[in-house]
Amino acid sequence: MKGLSINLATVRQQWGLREAVEACAKHGITAVAPWRDQVAKQGLSESARIIKDNGMQVTGLCRGGMFPAATREGLQAAIDDNLRAIDEAVTLGADCLVLVVGGLPGSSKDITEARGMVADGIAAILPHARANNMPLAIEPLHPMYAADRACVNTLGQALDICEGLGEGVGVAIDVYHVWWDPELFKQIERAGKLGRILAHHICDWLVPTRDLLLDRGMMGDGVIDLKPIRAAIEAAGFNGPQEVEIFSAENWWKKDGNEVLTTCIERFRTVC
C-alpha cells in the first residue's frame, strides 16, 4: 500500500513490535513508525532486524523531546535521553526522530521560558543529529497540551525554531494538532519553501471527543478535511507516506488488529 504508513501506537494494544510489523507486511503496508518503548521491549537490534527483514520504511521514531526542566540536571537528563534517541533512530533507519518538545517545567507559568528551553535543548542535540544524518522533526501539538506535553503549538512556532537553528531540523505535521489553525495553509507553504516538512500524520477529530489524549478518530469519522491538507503538503514538496497515528482506548484499541489495518487502508483510499 504505497503512500501509507502505520504509526505502531495505532495497534499498540493488539500487538508488540514484531507482530505489528509482520501484520502490516501481510496487508501490503510497507512503512511503519514505532515508539521507543515498543522498540525497547523488543530490543533495539532485534527491532531493526525485524523491520529490515519485512522491507519496511521507518517514517519516524517516536519520540524525543520533553526538554523543559526545573533544574539544570533535569535539562541535561533530557538532552542525554535525546542523544540516545538519535542513536536508536539511526539504528532503525528512521526518516526522522519526532520531537514532542515538552510543556511547562515544575510549577512554572512562563511558557516563553519553556519555549526557550526547547530551542536550547534541540540546539544541544543538533550536532549529534547532523553528524549522524538524522533529521529532527518538531511536532507542534494542539494548545490543549501546552502545559504538560508541548509548549510549541502551531506550525508557525515550530518553523520559527527551525529557522533559528538551521539545517537538520524540520516539522512533523499531525492533522490532529494543527487542523484548526487559521494560518495552517500559509505555514505549510512556508514549510515547503524552507524544505522543512519531514512527516505527515493523519487521523481525525471526533465530535464529541471523550478523552483529549486517547479518543482520536479514524480518518473519515470526524471533522478534519483531510484532502486539502494533504494536497497542500504535497504541493509544498513532501510526498512521503501519510502516517496513521490513532490513540483510541475505547474504540480502535479494542478491535482486532487486522480489522484496524484493513480500515486504515480503506479510509486512506477513500477519504485521505
Results as ranks from 00 to 15, higher is better:
4 L>S: 03
5 S>A: 08
7 N>C: 10
7 N>Q: 07
11 V>H: 03
11 V>P: 00
13 Q>R: 06
13 Q>F: 02
19 E>N: 04
20 A>D: 10
26 K>L: 11
27 H>R: 12
30 T>Q: 04
37 D>E: 07
41 K>Y: 10
45 S>I: 04
45 S>G: 09
48 A>L: 10
48 A>E: 07
53 D>L: 13
59 T>E: 15
61 L>P: 12
61 L>M: 15
64 G>H: 15
64 G>V: 15
64 G>L: 14
66 M>G: 15
68 P>G: 14
69 A>Y: 11
70 A>G: 14
70 A>T: 12
72 R>I: 02
75 L>M: 13
78 A>H: 03
79 I>Q: 11
81 D>W: 13
82 N>G: 03
82 N>P: 06
82 N>A: 09
83 L>C: 12
85 A>W: 07
85 A>S: 15
85 A>P: 12
90 V>I: 07
93 G>V: 07
93 G>K: 02
94 A>E: 08
96 C>E: 10
98 V>L: 13
104 L>C: 07
110 D>A: 12
112 T>K: 02
115 R>L: 04
117 M>K: 10
118 V>Y: 13
119 A>S: 14
124 A>H: 06
124 A>F: 05
125 I>V: 15
126 L>V: 09
127 P>S: 09
128 H>E: 14
130 R>G: 13
131 A>L: 11
134 M>F: 05
141 L>G: 02
142 H>W: 12
142 H>I: 02
143 P>H: 07
146 A>P: 00
147 A>T: 11
150 A>K: 00
151 C>L: 06
152 V>A: 04
153 N>L: 12
158 A>S: 11
163 E>Y: 08
166 G>L: 11
168 G>R: 05
169 V>W: 15
170 G>S: 11
172 A>P: 04
173 I>T: 10
174 D>L: 04
176 Y>R: 11
178 V>T: 13
179 W>M: 07
185 F>G: 00
186 K>Y: 02
188 I>Q: 07
192 G>H: 03
196 R>N: 02
198 L>I: 01
203 C>M: 07
204 D>F: 01
207 V>P: 03
212 L>V: 06
215 D>V: 08
216 R>L: 06
217 G>T: 03
219 M>L: 08
221 D>G: 05
223 V>R: 04
223 V>H: 10
226 L>T: 09
228 P>W: 07
229 I>Q: 05
232 A>K: 03
232 A>Y: 13
233 I>N: 09
236 A>G: 09
236 A>S: 13
238 F>Q: 01
239 N>H: 13
242 Q>G: 05
242 Q>N: 09
244 V>M: 03
246 I>V: 15
247 F>G: 01
248 S>H: 01
248 S>K: 01
248 S>N: 04
251 N>M: 02
251 N>S: 09
252 W>P: 00
253 W>R: 00
254 K>A: 01
255 K>R: 03
257 G>E: 01
258 N>D: 12
258 N>A: 05
260 V>T: 05
260 V>K: 03
267 R>G: 03
269 R>H: 14
270 T>H: 08
